[in-house]
Write a protein that binds this DNA or RNA. Structure first.
Ligand SMILES: NC(=O)c1ccc[n+]([C@@H]2O[C@H](COP(=O)([O-])OP(=O)(O)OC[C@H]3O[C@@H](n4cnc5c(N)ncnc54)[C@H](O)[C@@H]3O)[C@@H](O)[C@H]2O)c1
Ligand SMILES: NC(=O)c1ccc[n+]([C@@H]2O[C@H](COP(=O)([O-])OP(=O)(O)OC[C@H]3O[C@@H](n4cnc5c(N)ncnc54)[C@H](O)[C@@H]3O)[C@@H](O)[C@H]2O)c1
Lengths: 214, 214
DNA sequence: TTATCGCTGTTAAATTTATAACAGTGCAAA
DNA sequence: TTTGCACTGTTATAAATTTAACAGCGATAA
């Protein structure tokens, strides 16, 4: 009997890397490449080729011995694993500098993941469209989340509005939150949460720069 | 003889958490709190109190038994460890949507870490000041990096300009790079590199949302 | 034809990171 | 004054993640 590949217990780090592999592979494909070796992927991602082969083993993909991995096949397989078949709709709350930068960057990049609505409190923004994403009043959030079957929310409101925004999202039945404000939030266990603060990353870089000096 | 605390081999994850602890502590301080327990810090950061105590043990900080940790003292100690005494200057290359959002967010947030220059190729931007940061021509990068003793660069140029920008920075003697473009870069071993792509994070959130559905 | 080379796929080992377990402490209430 | 309690600090254990080791394979070329 073949090994059961459920993908339910892939390591978290592997999930992240699969997304990164795909990004790199899409670029290679657009450059006309059709096959790639594990050590080439590794170099791009600053990791080892063993790591790459191990990850691909976990998802059950086999390359050919002489030519390496078929880029298109691998892209498709990664898609089968990390994408949701029917697609996942995303909303962004807070159409300020960061929110608009993210929308502008993300829109059209992925088939199965789409930012389908923006929300704000500022009347000057409500009703406008930014990079193809319409900005709605926050008062309509609950309605539109349900209407458009939005599962994931990205929070880019001012820090002091974060807690309230998170509550609103949870109440509307959101299943995942990506919080870009510097204010950590609390969510129920059934909501998946990621938080990111650029200052932490920048301080980490600064720390290791300082260390290399000493 | 007291244990030698060099901080050179603190776990990477501990470094990240120290930055996050400080962010949380600064907020608590501004709310008038003077002391805090490990489980309170833990709750904010979505980790366990053991983790917090272990991290603080590694940096040699002791709280008082009944009142917990002195917030101001802990902030100062974390600063002594992760900040560079003389401060570190940062430049941002690419004053577009994302670059300006980051500048606007970061400016004034930390004493020992300052964005002191921006660079762009667009004549409309060069000479202007954004959130207090002056935008220079990219042709002046080398000169200004040296003049202002800039050690860290943040890359927010269009993806296809990334490789070239990274090369320019390395040649100018930069010691750390934070790359926000989706194009991974290569740097020499003595340059510390962090890369971040929002799509990876968003795809991770989407993946676990999808998984919880099945 | 046979040896060599540079890949892949997989199991084993090492390292890193997180969690558990528990002794020690000082206040508070009995 | 003694017992319980709610913390801290530290060592021991476990889990997650990475790296190493190596067998197998197929093209290439001697
Ligand atoms: N994680 C990072 O790396 C990073 C980087 C930059 C900014 N930030 C954070 O992101 C957030 C947004 O930053 P910005 O520069 O875009 O700020 P901004 O002021 O430009 O944008 C905030 C937007 O949110 C809207 N808003 C305010 N209250 C709201 C509410 N209750 N509901 C919905 N919308 C509301 C405002 O009208 C505005 O359009 C801030 O919290 C900032 O600290 C994070
Ligand atoms: N990591 C993330 O989460 C994330 C989010 C959004 C955008 N991005 C990426 O960040 C980058 C910037 O995005 P944006 O929305 O700000 O784009 P943008 O077009 O608004 O800004 C790019 C800026 O770079 C300048 N520029 C172009 N070539 C340059 C060069 N050679 N040297 C210096 N400056 C140059 C342009 O004049 C412009 O001002 C893009 O690569 C985008 O893909 C990343």
């Amino acid at each position: 009997m073949a090994k059961q590949l459920t993908f339910k217990n892939l390591p978290h780090k592997t999930i992240e890397r699969l997304s990164q592999y795909r990004r790199a592979l899409l670029l290679c494909l657009s450059n006309g490449k059709t096959h790639i070796f594990s050590h080439e992927i590794a170099k791009i991602q600053h990791i080892t080729s063993v790591q790459v082969r191990r990850d691909l083993m976990l998802i059950g993909y086999s390359g050919t011995l002489r030519k390496g991995y078929n880029i298109q096949e691998l892209i498709d397989l990664i898609g089968n694993i990390i994408d949701s078949e029917e697609g996942i709709n995303v909303a962004i709350i807070g159409m300020g500098n960061l929110g608009r930068a993210l929308i502008n960057y993300f829109t059209g990049k992925r088939h199965k993941l789409e930012i389908v609505a923006g929300f704000d409190t500022n009347p000057d923004k409500i009703g406008n469209t930014f990079s193809g994403v319409e900005c709605h009043s926050i008062t309509e959030l609950n309605k539109i989340i349900k209407q458009k079957d939005i599962k994931v929310g990205i929070i880019t409101v001012p820090a002091d509005q974060t807690t309230e925004t998170a509550k609103t999202l949870v109440k509307a039945g959101i299943k995942g939150i990506l919080n870009y404000t510097p204010k950590p939030i609390d969510v129920p266990d059934d909501v998946y949460l990621e938080e990111y603060d650029m200052i932490t990353t920048l301080e980490k870089v600064a720390f290791y720069v300082k260390m290399s000096d000493e």
